[in-house]
Amino acid sequence: MSANTTVSETTFRSREVERRVTGQAVSDGAGVKLLRVLTADLQRRLDPFLMLDEFRSDNPDDYLAGFPDHPHRGFETVTYMLAGRMRHRDNAGHEGLLTAGGVQWMTAGRGIVHSELPEQENGLMHGFQLWVNLPARDKLTTPAYQDLPEAAIPGYQAVSGATIKVIAGDSEGVTGAIQRDATAPLYLDIELPAGTTHLAAIPVGHNAFGYVYQGQVEVGERSDTVAARQLAVLSNAPEADGVRLRSAEGARLLLVAGRPLHEPIVQWGPFVMNRREEVEQALADYRAGRF
């Protein structure tokens, strides 16, 4: 079933929770405190996704130093802001300001050096960064950005009562802001009011996960509880239409799915290629100023 098909309660078969993951507190950039939820040990299982970080703090000392100039090659970064602002600059002269509710989808391609610098807004900073792999054929493509304000992110209220923002892919006939051929990502921000049961379609064959960032959610026919700040790896049963989501007291979560690339993954920090020699070349190119 495709992701934009309206699903039926009577015939729907849900994916189940295969594994729960609790994030690891880390610091990155110039000491920014993060919760790293999708880590390297999940890259094969959740191909094409490489990393998911949540940043959330009302203490500016936790984030104002930001992420000074740093390189990327071979993948895409997706920054989604719920609160606060983030200014982006790169070595090609591009600059943008990501505000609350907005998304930046950056294709690093053959190489880019950029900075991500928070700008305080009422003290609170909250958002996510997802890394999405590129296929071998696109790893050295020209770098590109899509900077999308909140108004450019399609959203709708489902018959279930859930409110859904469609960042990428398609959901119940609503086409998201971003489309990608190789990985066909689905990226939804779902709000479940108290007592809501929502049936979310996920394409067969896609690897998928849910990340609950507020409240708790009962997932699948087994009603496995996924608590706030936990990631649920979803099963890949070929007969499943998607995933059943229910929240007794109200919740918000990210639902993310993508077509696996089934290619080797060789990562060294901010470089993700298919072979070690390619990573070594990326490092040499960066040091020589060829980004």
Rank of each mutant, 00 (worst) to 15 (best):
93 G>L: 09
93 G>Y: 09
155 G>V: 01
112 I>R: 00
174 V>L: 15
105 W>T: 15
142 T>P: 01
122 N>Q: 12
155 G>C: 11
162 A>Q: 02
137 R>Q: 15
100 A>D: 03
169 G>M: 05
85 R>D: 10
167 I>M: 00
164 I>F: 06
91 N>H: 14
154 P>H: 14
145 Y>I: 00
131 W>K: 02
153 I>F: 05
109 G>H: 01
89 R>A: 08
81 M>G: 15
66 G>S: 02
141 T>P: 02
103 V>R: 13
166 V>Y: 02
144 A>S: 06
96 G>A: 15
157 Q>I: 03
153 I>V: 13
95 E>K: 10
88 H>I: 00
162 A>E: 03
111 G>M: 11
82 L>T: 15
154 P>N: 04
128 F>H: 10
64 L>G: 04
119 E>W: 08
168 A>N: 09
98 L>W: 03
117 L>T: 15
130 L>G: 03
137 R>T: 15
137 R>P: 06
62 D>M: 05
140 L>H: 07
158 A>C: 04
144 A>R: 08
95 E>D: 08
146 Q>E: 14
154 P>Q: 07
110 R>Q: 15
101 G>K: 14
65 A>C: 04
164 I>L: 12
173 G>E: 13
168 A>Y: 11
121 E>Q: 08
151 A>T: 14
84 G>F: 09
66 G>C: 00
91 N>G: 03
77 T>I: 06
78 V>T: 07
92 A>R: 15
78 V>H: 11
71 P>K: 10
139 K>E: 13
118 P>M: 12
160 S>M: 05
116 E>M: 10
118 P>R: 13
150 E>A: 14
154 P>I: 06
151 A>E: 11
91 N>K: 09
79 T>G: 04
71 P>L: 06
75 F>D: 00
160 S>T: 04
147 D>I: 00
64 L>P: 01
97 L>Y: 01
